[in-house]
Simulated assay, not measured.
Amino acid sequence: MSRPDWPRSWSLDPRKIDGYLLDESHIEGGSKARFFKRFGFHLGEPLSLSSALLDHPTETSFVGETVSTRGDVKLIFEGAIIMPDGRAPRIRTVWRIDAKGHAHFVTAVPMT
C-alpha cells in the first residue's frame, strides 16, 4: 500500500502512557500494560515507551489508513518495537491526522 501524505509532526499525549498503556487498572489498557511491562517498560520511565512509540511509524510498515464518517483520517502501522529487554515483538500503532497535517497517537495493540 502506498504511503499517504506524511504528517508534519508526530505527538503523543503523556497521559496515554501513564494513564492507559502502563496502567494495569485501566479497563481498556490493562492488558496492554501487562504486555509492555512484561518486556521491561514501566511507569518509572514513561519517556522510554513514548520514544519507542514515536519511532514506530518510521521504523515499521505502513499498512493502511481509515477515514471515519466524521472525516477523521487514521494511519495504521505494524511491525516490531524494540523493548528495554532487547526483544522485539510486533505491535500495531494507530495515529489520527488533524486538519493541519499533524499525527496524534491513538493506541498501540500487541500483535504477538
Rank of each mutant, 00 (worst) to 15 (best):
S2L: 13
S2T: 10
S2W: 05
R3D: 07
R3Y: 14
D5A: 14
W6T: 10
P7N: 06
P7E: 05
R8M: 09
R8G: 05
R8C: 03
S9A: 14
S9E: 11
S9F: 05
S11T: 14
L12W: 11
L12H: 10
D13K: 13
D13F: 09
P14A: 10
R15P: 00
K16F: 04
K16D: 02
K16M: 04
D18F: 14
Y20S: 09
L21W: 14
L21V: 02
L22P: 05
L22Y: 06
L22K: 05
D23H: 06
D23E: 14
D23M: 04
E24D: 14
E24Y: 00
S25D: 12
S25T: 14
E28V: 03
E28M: 05
S31T: 12
S31I: 07
K32S: 02
A33T: 10
A33N: 08
R34S: 08
R34F: 02
F35H: 06
F35M: 08
F36Y: 15
K37I: 12
R38Q: 12
F39L: 03
F39K: 02
G40H: 08
H42K: 06
H42N: 15
G44C: 07
E45H: 12
E45Q: 14
P46N: 04
S48F: 03
S48T: 11
S50D: 01
A52S: 14
L53P: 05
L54W: 03
D55C: 06
D55G: 00
D55Q: 11
H56G: 05
H56C: 06
P57G: 11
P57C: 11
T58G: 10
T60R: 13
T60V: 09
T60Q: 13
T60Y: 11
S61V: 09
F62L: 04
F62M: 04
V63W: 07
G64S: 06
G64R: 08
E65Q: 14
E65S: 11
E65N: 01
T66H: 03
V67E: 15
S68A: 08
T69L: 12
R70K: 15
G71K: 04
D72V: 08
D72T: 13
V73D: 01
V73N: 00
L75S: 01
I76G: 00
I76W: 09
F77K: 01
E78R: 13
G79E: 08
G79S: 11
A80P: 12
A80N: 09
A80I: 02
I81P: 01
I81V: 15
I82R: 14
M83T: 15
D85S: 09
G86Y: 10
G86E: 10
R87K: 14
R87E: 14
R87L: 11
R87A: 11
R90C: 01
R90T: 03
I91P: 01
I91Q: 02
R92M: 13
T93L: 01
V94D: 02
V94Y: 08
W95C: 05
W95K: 03
R96G: 09
R96Y: 07
D98G: 02
A99V: 13
A99E: 15
K100G: 04
G101H: 05
H102V: 06
A103N: 05
V106Q: 07
T107P: 10
A108E: 00
A108K: 00
V109D: 06
P110K: 02
P110H: 05
P110W: 01
T112P: 15
T112R: 03
T112K: 04
T112N: 15
